[in-house]
């Protein structure tokens, strides 16, 4: 038994069950316990997620091409992008650090963007395939999203520690800003998607019951 069939929605804030006054998809009710607006589904979830996702894809390109940080020494300025940092650590034989940076700043954002595209397309095509797996993928994107911030923080900590005026200084590059935007936008995109849409397709539920 699903809540939408009984015209019941759970309050997003306090999980109180609220009987919806109007039809299935329109309007909202006020939760009697906490006064939040209760919608049957997150409003315009698919459109909002697509918009945020496309914006984050656009920002992902300069985030990888432009330098993350500048190392300023008396010999000159050296700029590092994400990829050059990873290659530096591989050539330096610190494979663990290379792995952490690669996972957090290249693998995780791409994985997140691909998973969200897959979820959006499958919901729009009203697919019945792998619903349990898709739900797990969604939970995964919510959990791993924050960990991409590691690279932004590393730039911040390095600027604070390597600060010898005239000798060596590290300054953040413009790429770090774009990368920060990618992380924030993908987090918002994951939040605006509604996993209940995966289970909402009527034909799938009917087939299963037969």
């Amino acid at each position: 038994m699903r809540a939408i069939d009984k015209n019941i929605a759970a309050c997003p804030t306090c999980h109180n069950l609220v009987q919806m006054p109007f039809g299935k998809q329109k309007g909202y009710a006020l939760c009697p316990r906490c006064d939040s607006e209760v919608y049957m589904r997150k409003s315009d979830a698919v459109q909002k997620t697509w918009a945020l996702l496309l914006a984050s894809i656009v920002f992902y390109i300069p985030a990888n091409l432009l330098p993350m940080m500048h190392v300023i020494t008396f010999a000159g300025t050296e700029s590092d992008t994400i990829m050059s940092g990873v290659f530096y650590f591989i050539s330096d034989k610190s494979y663990l650090i290379a792995f952490v940076i690669f996972t957090a700043s290249i693998f995780v954002p791409i994985l997140k963007i691909l998973i969200l595209i897959y979820l959006l397309i499958s919901v729009q095509k009203r697919s019945c395939m792998h619903r349990q797996r898709r739900k797990k993928l969604y939970v995964l994107t919510e959990i791993i999203g924050r960990w991409s911030m590691v690279d932004v923080y590393v730039v911040g900590v390095m600027t604070a520690l390597v600060h010898f005026a005239g000798l060596t200084e590290i300054k953040p590059g413009i790429g770090a800003n774009f990368f920060l935007l990618v992380v924030i936008l993908t987090m918002f995109a994951a939040m605006s998607f509604d996993p209940k849409l995966i289970w909402d397709i009527k034909e799938c539920n009917e087939n299963r019951e037969q």
Binding site: V100, A104, G145, R146, W147, M149, V150, V154, M158, L161
Partner: peptide, 20 residues
């Protein structure tokens, strides 16, 4: 809750210590 990222910052400190 999702935006307080002290645990991520902890990992970043470990990474920068190894870097430096």
């Amino acid at each position: 809750l999702p935006w307080g990222m002290l645990d991520v910052f902890f990992l970043a400190i470990l990474v920068s210590i190894v870097k430096l």
